[in-house]
Amino acid sequence: MTALLNLENVLFYIVICLYFLATLCYFLFIGLKRDALGKAAILIQTLGLALHTAALVCRGLGAGRLPLTNQYEFAASFAWGLCLVSLIFIHRFKFPVLGAFAAPVILLVIGYAAMQSREVRALMPALRSSWLGFHVSTAIIAYGSFGVSAVLGLIFLLRERMRDRGFWDLHVPAREKLDLISYRSVCLGLLFLSFTIITGAIWAEQAWGSYWSWDPKETWSLVTWLIYATYLHLRIRRGWKGKAAAIFAVVGFVCVLFTYVGVNTLLPGVHSYA
């Protein structure tokens, strides 16, 4: 068990180095406008994701449970989710520049994980539920997708300034397409956030006898859900596409981050452990 946790420790630091290297490569890729650097960055990020997956598996086996139960594990998994969703979008839309914006965010989140306590502690009985796995893993995908949509929103806002026609046109989709990809990402996020809320409610019902009790984390996940629902309706109703939608995606993600970090630190509740 300790051998696995030690291995996880080593892998975790290698993963941080790889993400750092990937970020550097992405920056050089857009700075020097060399395609090879972009390809190398994607490769390094993919390798990082593979080792990150291995680290999480080691942690899970070492601790004898899903590695999703405290601040460190959730932050590490959040970074994993961001990395996975961004790579999916990079491949699906042939869009390496997305990596240059996503990689620093991943680095930030995994850096936050590195600052948390890594101790493996016994779980309180309420956390020993198979619903926990569904609840947290869907949250990771949701947060990852919202992160990617915010990054895409940022790229959208900067797209006009990307003047060097050849390079940017080749590597960054046109604004209309960027807007649609960001929208797709919000859709993925909202679907998974809904899963998170519902599995969380089912679990809370079994553990605490109440599926909704207006706990700050619950309330903020609802606020996030309402904000993204508003985003979808504004898109339809007012044709709030493009710039307004991009700003909305960024604001939505700030709300996600508040739900994730702010609520734990600023507002007390049953989610104080993660």
Binding site: W214, P216, T219, W220, L222, V223, L226, I227, A229, T230, H233, L234, I236, R237, V263, L267
Partner: peptide, 24 residues
């Protein structure tokens, strides 16, 4: 209407956010 829906969604979101800051 959807206009009313958007208005309600925004007000409800704001109320929930406010409610989480003011100790209940």
């Amino acid at each position: 209407s959807m206009r009313f829906a958007i208005l309600l969604l925004v007000i409800l979101a704001a109320a929930c956010a406010g409610g989480s800051f003011i100790p209940q």
